[in-house]
Design a protein around this nucleic acid. Structure first.
Lengths: 203, 203
DNA sequence: CAATTTATATACCACCCGTTATGGAAATCG
DNA sequence: CGATTTCCATAACGGGTGGTATATAAATTG
């Protein structure tokens, strides 16, 4: 009985690091979108050849989905953490400033991987769109639940709608992504965030 | 001296209506984006052949720019009209409800032509991106001037930033476009608009 | 040292892209 | 009518696409 199977492979070991290659692929998808990223773009950025890519990741779609997993795990984790803030305003602050940091980090490509690929073009990439939209919907749903709880806790007035606020924060995030993708500076995005928080209900 | 030159052409007249063909092309670009729309898609929707398209419109890029002109002229004219509202709140109402109507009109493709192509993929479409981003920036600038005037007229408190509000409305519009493109219903978008207006300063 | 297993490298596949050359049809002008 | 001009249809162009077959190199297992 083997506790850990195949920790040492039989044949020739691969010469590249799968994680590093995936991180490079993520950057390409993030910059160009699924359809805009060609296999040549990917292999060049990843530093491997096409057969190696196919052997390690399956195909372009499977590679994208793994990159999307990595993106959620490393880049949008602030969203999950934001929901733990004690007040609804705290949630909004963490979400907006988290987005601001991410979209204005010079090491990241401009914009949002999810937004780029949810408005993506072709019909062949429909499953890609669906995967991305599903994750966005899940994030919105988590916000909705958090704000419903907040309303019960008296975090904001009776006339505000938790679903509306969730949609609002989602729209702010998407708007920031689009403006960042269009080349907005950090200062401009900061202004947007501060305005959004000034408008946020309650304190 | 000819008042109107070339109203009657010398050779064989074309068998299709240029305006109708351009409208059809706009729908294709609006649905699939610049790069996602192939010449085959376009010619099929327009009901003409490729040589006819090239003779009448130049090339794909020129066709897109003419479609973009048509889009601004017919679909986003509500933005220009919105700025004439007497109060800043009226401007925001007209902008948001105008966007709502446009994005939830069943005759229109989902989403926003500008947003789709400002996050567009490839490097070859850079000039397309620039054209679209320039128009978006112009719209934002017009909002800024209107809100600066509104602030002087006392339309909202001293601590709100006209530039921030312009960015805010732009973000709301972009967020609505992304969510509409992802399949949001009119009711969902309505909720977003009503929340946005509830948060709007003043009144 | 074989034998085996796996990774890499080169080249290639059929297909689709935007664009254009070619050949014939249909209209106006002299 | 003949000449000319313009439009339409077919088909082809070079180049790029995602994906793969083949052959060689490098490692482990006996």
């Amino acid at each position: 009985m083997e506790i850990e199977a195949a920790t040492v492979s039989k044949g020739r070991p691969r010469e590249f690091c799968v994680d590093a290659a995936l991180a490079a692929a993520l950057r390409v998808f993030w910059s160009k979108g699924y359809e805009g990223a060609s296999m040549a773009d990917l292999t060049e950025a990843m530093g491997i050849t096409k057969p190696s890519l196919y052997a390690a990741f399956g195909n372009k779609e499977a590679l994208f989905n793994k990159a999307l997993d990595l993106y959620e795990r490393e880049k949008t984790d602030y969203m999950r953490a934001a929901l733990d803030a004690p007040t609804a305003r705290g949630v909004a602050e963490r979400l907006m400033y988290g987005a601001l940091d991410m979209y204005s980090c010079p090491e990241n490509p401009n914009g949002c991987l999810g937004v780029i690929n949810s408005v993506a073009c072709g019909a062949e990439a429909e499953c890609i769109r669906e995967a991305v939209v599903a994750r966005s919907a899940a994030a919105k749903q988590a916000m909705l639940e958090r704000f419903t709880r907040a309303k019960n806790e008296g975090d904001f007035p009776d006339d505000v709608d938790p679903a509306g606020l969730a949609a609002f924060l989602t729209a702010m995030n998407q708007g920031m992504a689009v403006q960042a993708g269009a080349g907005a500076t950090r200062a401009e995005l900061e202004r947007l965030v501060e305005t959004g928080l000034k408008l946020w209900p309650g304190r």
